[in-house]
Measured scan of single mutants.
Amino acid sequence: RTRTSFTAEQLYRLEMEFQRCQYVVGRERTELARQLNLSETQVKVWFQNRRTKQKK
Rank of each mutant, 00 (worst) to 15 (best):
R1Y: 14
R1F: 14
R1D: 15
T2M: 10
T2Y: 06
R3H: 15
R3V: 14
T4G: 07
T4K: 11
T4D: 09
T4S: 11
T4L: 15
T4N: 13
S5F: 10
S5V: 08
F6G: 04
F6C: 03
F6N: 04
F6H: 07
F6D: 04
T7F: 01
T7A: 05
T7I: 03
T7K: 03
T7D: 12
A8L: 09
E9Q: 08
E9F: 13
Q10Y: 02
Q10C: 08
L11I: 11
Y12D: 15
Y12Q: 15
R13D: 05
L14Y: 04
M16P: 00
M16Y: 09
M16W: 06
E17L: 03
F18S: 03
F18G: 01
F18V: 01
Q19Y: 03
Q19I: 09
Q19K: 13
Q19H: 07
R20W: 03
R20G: 05
C21Q: 05
Q22D: 11
Q22T: 09
Q22Y: 03
Y23E: 13
Y23A: 14
V24E: 05
V25I: 08
V25R: 09
V25D: 15
G26D: 09
G26Y: 05
G26P: 08
R27I: 15
R27K: 11
T30P: 02
T30E: 13
T30H: 07
T30D: 04
E31F: 01
E31R: 02
E31Y: 00
E31D: 07
E31N: 13
L32M: 06
L32F: 05
A33K: 00
A33V: 01
A33L: 02
A33R: 00
R34S: 11
R34I: 06
Q35W: 06
Q35N: 08
Q35T: 08
L36G: 00
N37S: 07
N37G: 12
S39C: 07
S39W: 00
E40N: 01
E40A: 08
T41A: 13
T41H: 12
Q42P: 01
Q42N: 07
Q42A: 13
V43Q: 01
V43G: 02
V43F: 01
V45D: 15
V45H: 12
V45S: 15
V45M: 09
W46T: 00
F47S: 01
F47A: 00
F47N: 02
F47R: 01
F47H: 02
Q48W: 03
Q48F: 14
N49V: 10
R50N: 04
R50D: 00
R50E: 13
R51S: 08
R51H: 12
T52G: 14
T52V: 12
T52M: 15
Q54D: 14
Q54A: 13
Q54W: 08
K55Q: 15
K55A: 14
K56M: 09
K56Q: 09
K56F: 05
K56D: 15
K56H: 09
